[in-house]
Amino acid sequence: MQAFVKTLTGKTITLEVEPSDTIENVKAKIQDKEGIPPDQQRLIFAGKQLEDGRTLSDYNIQKESTLHLVLR
């Protein structure tokens, strides 16, 4: 499924993900596309910070959801 990641600069990245993907996995995909190390990434969805060990389905993130990427 497709999900979108919006950065603070307003850029939107499109990712191909599965509901079973972990947040860690998603961060690795963002690193592949953008070169941002996962340890600098914080992903926010519905106002919550997403934890590495959880999956997209844990957070009820469905296709075409938009996550927000904040860098630390």
Rank of each mutant, 00 (worst) to 15 (best):
S65L: 08
K48R: 12
K11I: 09
Q62H: 11
L8S: 15
G10L: 03
V17T: 03
S20T: 13
R42Q: 13
K29R: 07
P37H: 12
L67S: 01
E64F: 13
E34A: 13
T14I: 14
G35F: 04
V26D: 00
P38Q: 13
L50E: 00
T14F: 09
K63Q: 12
S65C: 07
L43V: 04
G53Y: 11
R72D: 11
D32H: 11
R54C: 09
L69F: 05
M1L: 08
K6D: 04
I44T: 09
L50C: 04
M1W: 12
F45V: 03
M1V: 06
L43E: 00
F45I: 04
T7K: 04
K6F: 08
T12A: 04
K48Q: 14
I13H: 03
K63S: 15
R42A: 10
K63L: 08
T66I: 14
D39N: 12
T9C: 13
L8K: 11
R72F: 11
D39T: 10
Y59H: 03
E64I: 06
I30L: 07
D32L: 13
V70C: 09
P19Q: 07
Y59M: 03
K33Q: 11
L71H: 08
S65P: 07
N25T: 14
T55A: 06
V26T: 03
S20R: 09
Q40E: 11
T14Q: 09
F4W: 06
V5N: 01
I13N: 01
K29I: 06
L15V: 09
R72A: 13
G47S: 05
I61G: 02
T66P: 06
I23L: 04
I23C: 02
Q40A: 10
L67A: 02
E24I: 11
E34F: 11
V70F: 14
L8M: 14
I30C: 01
K63N: 15
L67P: 03
Q49T: 15
S65E: 09
Q41A: 04
Q62G: 14
D21A: 06
P19D: 06
I44V: 10
E34Y: 08
R42N: 12
T9H: 13
E51R: 09
Q62C: 08
I36K: 02
H68T: 12
K6V: 14
A3P: 01
E24V: 07
R54K: 14
L56I: 08
T9F: 13
G47E: 05
V26L: 11
R54T: 07
Q62I: 12
T12R: 08
E64A: 08
E51G: 04
I23N: 01
K33F: 08
K33Y: 08
V5Y: 02
D39S: 13
S20C: 09
Q31R: 13
R72L: 14
Y59Q: 03
I36Y: 14
K27D: 00
G53R: 09
K29N: 03
A3K: 01
P37N: 07
L43K: 00
R54A: 08
D58A: 05
D52F: 04
A46F: 09
Q31I: 02
I44H: 10
Q40G: 06
E64M: 11
F4Y: 14
G47W: 05
Q2P: 08
R42I: 15
P19M: 10
V26G: 00
E51F: 07
Q40H: 12
I61W: 06
D58C: 03
T66Q: 07
I30A: 01
E18A: 13
I44M: 13
N25A: 14
E64V: 06
G47Q: 04
K11D: 07
L8A: 14
P19G: 08
E34R: 05
D58R: 02
E16G: 05
N25I: 15
S57L: 11
F4H: 10
A46V: 06
Q40W: 11
Y59R: 00
M1T: 04
S65M: 10
I13M: 05
R42E: 12
T9A: 12
K27P: 00
K29T: 03
L15Q: 00
I30W: 00
A3E: 02
T66K: 06
T66W: 09
E16A: 10
E51K: 10
I61R: 02
K33I: 14
A46I: 06
T7A: 05
Y59F: 04
P38E: 07
M1H: 05
T22W: 05
K27F: 03
D58E: 11
K11C: 08
P38T: 15
K33G: 04
K11N: 07
T12N: 05
M1D: 03
F4D: 03
I36Q: 02
I23A: 03
N25C: 11
E18I: 11
L67M: 09
L43A: 00
P37V: 05
E16I: 14
R42D: 09
K11M: 10
N25M: 15
T22F: 08
K6A: 07
L15R: 00
S20F: 11
E34N: 10
K6P: 02
T12V: 14
G35H: 06
H68Y: 15
T14Y: 09
K63M: 10
L69Q: 02
K11Y: 13
T22K: 08
R42T: 15
L43C: 01
V5E: 01
N25S: 14
V17M: 04
G47H: 05
K33L: 13
K6R: 11
E18K: 14
V26H: 00
L15G: 01
E16D: 11
K29Y: 07
N25V: 14
Q41V: 09
L67I: 13
T9D: 14
L67N: 01
L15A: 01
D39A: 13
L8R: 13
D32C: 08
T14K: 09
E18R: 14
T9G: 13
S65T: 10
V26M: 06
I36L: 06
L69H: 00
S57K: 12
K63H: 15
K63F: 08
R54D: 05
T55P: 05
I61F: 10
I36T: 07
I13D: 01
G10K: 03
I23H: 01
E16Y: 13
E18C: 12
E16H: 11
P37E: 07
V5L: 04
R72T: 13
P19A: 10
T9P: 04
Q41G: 03
L50H: 00
L50S: 01
V26E: 00
D39V: 09
G53D: 11
D52N: 11
E24P: 02
Y59N: 02
T9R: 10
D58F: 14
F4G: 02
S57T: 08
Q2H: 12
Y59C: 02
K63Y: 08
I13P: 00
D52A: 07
T66F: 09
D32I: 13
T66H: 15
G53K: 12
T12P: 03
I23W: 02
G10C: 06
Q49F: 14
D39P: 07
I36S: 04
G53V: 06
D21S: 07
I23G: 02
I61T: 03
E16F: 14
K11W: 09
G47K: 04
D21T: 10
K48A: 10
T7H: 05
A3R: 02
E51H: 09
K27S: 01
N60C: 06
L71V: 12
G53E: 10
K63W: 10
V17W: 03
I44Q: 06
E64T: 08
A46N: 15
I30D: 00
T22G: 03
V17G: 01
F4L: 07
T66Y: 08
T9S: 13
I30H: 00
K27R: 05
E51C: 10
V26K: 00
V26A: 02
Q31E: 10
V26W: 01
L8Q: 14
A3N: 03
Q31K: 10
G35Y: 03
Q49N: 11
G53M: 09
K29Q: 10
Q41E: 01
P37T: 06
